[in-house]
Design a protein around this nucleic acid. Structure first.
Lengths: 261, 261
DNA sequence: TTGTCAAATAGGTATTACGTATGCTCCACT
DNA sequence: AGTGGAGCATACGTAATACCTATTTGACAA
């Protein structure tokens, strides 16, 4: 057996055996995620008081200090409010003061949503925001931005048979439109919503080729509107694309909970 | 000097000298606000590394534990990311990963915004979201909701000469429409934006009677559309109301930075 | 019986001190 | 020149302690 053959023998599964490589299982984030889940799932209802810090820390098997840090993060998310003094403690806040745009909170909201209502609502919001941004882009587009956008569209065309690459190009297209609109607040919100939706298992069903071709056609329509400076048409086509793309992927669960326009 | 005179001397301003009664000046929140301000204002740019925990805690005059809790909150807001090891430390994140919907962050963004661009952007977003919700409400309104909404409108009519009461009724009207729409995610976002805008000093200029009367007329138009079930008209009137209300209040600073539709 | 004040108590707040884990950096050895 | 290990800087995690604050409770007086 030659040197190279031996290397191939040993080396074959050694190149990428476990690429999952979790960077560091921080204690605090695990506690936060557990508590967020308890609250969002309803196991801890608004008005309920959590156990005192010491018992709770023992229950999670962490020190009181890291528990306190976790509570601070929950407070930051608007899920609880803490107060000292006998009979106070940390109490779960009403839903309306939750920070629904927070990564962990939104993720838990989607995960515990049986009727898919949250994803429906999310799609409406994203559609409205990206529609406005597409319209603004159609108004103020520069020839440079137009070229970049055309390039992203071309990337979608050539990769229509390669789902991962196509999806990446899809995302890029939206990013360009949002950045070109100049509305950084809307961009920030829409991006967060999009990321959470895409990382949801329910959103990312396998997409057959026909769906990608449909998606491509819709993007082409959006691009033509922006290119021609047709504000109204850019808005309408972008909103339609986002809502239609979701109805295409959406599991036929409770079809009519929220009308997607 | 008699005992009583001495008591009066000391006691005079003791009855209600400062009813501001701040509940408790927590150390952590002060540190967080200071750091958020440093980052949002640009004094600490993305990519910069903050001083190590110990020096920083000394600089703020707090213990290392308190500082660590504050850093955790900054991390939660997406402003910094921390990592251990030599040469790592806590480093300021790029703007795109900031949690712009966070109370403190959004407040700082508005405060440091010279051109009012953020408030312009905020108005566009709020207009889009409340328009969608008004349309949805026009579609699905129940007679009960319609009665409640009519009551809120009536409250505005009778209080048009009393600015504080009028403004409260104004807010109530919007809350009812948002709640009736059933889109809790949009409601949550729009509410946060509205609250931050209203608490901004630049937003809350003194409103003369004529402006309130104009506002009232716009609300009446929205109500009629919802009552009649005219989805498109409800959307359009709500969006127009929100944008117009802002242009009425808006200081004539940099008028054209963002077109309000 | 009712009103008021003060002590006891429960809970979070803040400090301090210590040990652990992790990644650079650099130097020594191959 | 490349590689491997020592050292170091820095954050992570635990523990013990003292303090501050709001509620409860009980005693005492009207």
């Amino acid at each position: 057996m030659t040197e190279q053959a031996a290397a191939a023998d040993r080396g074959a599964p050694r190149v990428l055996p476990l690429p999952d490589r979790s960077p560091a299982p921080r204690l605090g984030v695990a506690v936060v995620e557990a508590l967020v889940d308890l609250i969002v799932s309803g196991a801890l209802a608004p008005g309920d008081t959590l156990p005192p810090e010491l018992p709770l820390s023992q229950q999670f098997g962490v020190s009181r200090t890291v528990l306190r840090e976790s509570i601070k993060r929950l407070e930051e998310k608007g899920l609880v409010s803490v107060g000292q003094g006998r009979g106070r403690g940390t109490v779960v806040q009403p839903t309306r003061s939750w920070n629904t745009m927070d990564r962990v909170v939104l993720k838990a909201l989607i995960a515990h949503d049986r009727t898919l209502g949250v994803l429906d609502e999310l799609t409406v919001v994203r559609g409205q925001l990206e529609a406005a941004m597409a319209g603004e882009t159609a108004r103020t587009r520069s020839s440079v931005e137009l070229d970049i956008l055309r390039g992203a569209l071309e990337d979608m065309r050539v990769s229509v048979h390669d789902a991962p690459v196509f999806n990446a190009a899809d995302v890029t297209f939206h990013e360009i439109v949002m950045a070109a609109s100049g509305n950084r607040l809307a961009e920030s919100i829409a991006r967060v919503l999009f990321e959470r939706a895409r990382e949801s298992a329910r959103y990312d069903v396998a997409t057959p080729l026909s769906l990608r071709q449909e998606t491509l056609r819709e993007h082409e329509r959006v691009f033509r509107a922006i290119e021609a400076g047709l504000v109204r048409e850019a808005e309408e086509s972008m909103r339609a694309h986002i809502c239609d793309a979701w109805t295409r992927r959406r599991p036929p669960d409770h079809k009519g909970t929220q009308r997607l326009r």
